[in-house]
């Protein structure tokens, strides 16, 4: 009999996530914790965190954390890494944080090829403020600021974050994964670990966009939310690895 699953050492032993029931943030945090553990860098890790549900990471992780202004985590991660190139530096952000208010910082951090890792939770809404339209909100999706559904004419189109990041020459790895099923969770774990490894190997910017549920603001059960990811989100945001410099 051997132990085949344990919680990551990165996460505090007494941690109790404060996310809503069924929210995939918890899965993403666990996978990231596993990746950091497996890379053996927990004690050399510094996280840059902004604003939104993602910021709660600092309450749950046993690592050094810096709170940043909304959207600026990748700029602050750049500063941390330039000051201490020997440290493992990552940001954990929502789609609004990474790709709306902070997109300039994000895309330039990738373009410069900063040796940092960014994880972006794409749940097509601003979760913490109660479900407003974000950069990735689907066409037709009802939010508190698109009461008639997102219209392309009025609100423009959802942003394809991982594809944008993959276009940057400084990006070493960019992928989009999903947490809607066990099979996809396993693939997500592999991608997150890869995004960490490219930093450690000094290859460039590592990025993973994670399609993630927000049952509360989507007004769905956790099960319906995962079905929504499969049926509505993945057709718009295809899963896959868009750039991987370790593969020829």
């Amino acid at each position: 009999m051997q132990q085949v699953f344990k919680l990551p050492d990165c996460i505090k032993k007494d941690a109790k996530f404060t996310f809503c029931p069924g929210c995939d943030h918890g899965v993403a945090l666990r996978l990231l914790g596993d990746a950091i553990d497996e890379c053996g860098v927990r004690e050399d890790t510094i996280a840059a965190l902004c604003v939104g549900c993602s910021v709660f990471l600092y309450d749950f992780y046993d690592i050094d954390c810096l709170e940043c202004p909304h959207g600026r985590a990748t700029a602050e991660a750049t500063g941390i890494k330039r000051a201490r190139p020997d440290k493992f530096v990552f940001t954990y952000q929502g789609d609004g944080d990474f790709a709306a208010i902070g997109f300039a910082e994000s895309i330039y951090t990738a373009t410069r090829g900063e040796k940092v890792t960014s994880i972006c939770i794409n749940n097509t809404t601003y979760g913490m403020t109660g479900g407003q339209m974000g950069p990735t909100t689907l066409l037709g999706q009802v939010t508190t600021t698109t009461p008639f559904g997102r219209s392309a004419e009025l609100n423009g189109y959802p942003m394809k974050i991982a594809e944008h990041i993959a276009l940057c020459d400084g990006t070493a790895f960019s992928a989009r994964v999903s947490l809607d099923s066990v099979a996809n969770i396993i693939k997500a774990k592999q991608a997150i670990k890869k995004a960490c490894e490219v930093q450690i190997k000094g290859l460039g910017f590592g990025f993973v966009e994670i399609l993630s549920s927000c049952p509360t603001n989507w007004k769905m059960t956790p099960q319906e939310a995962h079905r929504h990811i499969r049926e509505k989100m993945i057709p718009v945001f295809p899963l896959g690895v868009f750039k991987d410099v370790t593969k020829g």
Binding site: A75, G79, A83
Partner: peptide, 14 residues
């Protein structure tokens, strides 16, 4: 300049 001040904050935090 938004990025530069935040890079400075990041470096200062170390």
């Amino acid at each position: 300049e938004i990025a530069s001040i935040n890079m400075v904050i990041g470096a200062a935090s170390t």
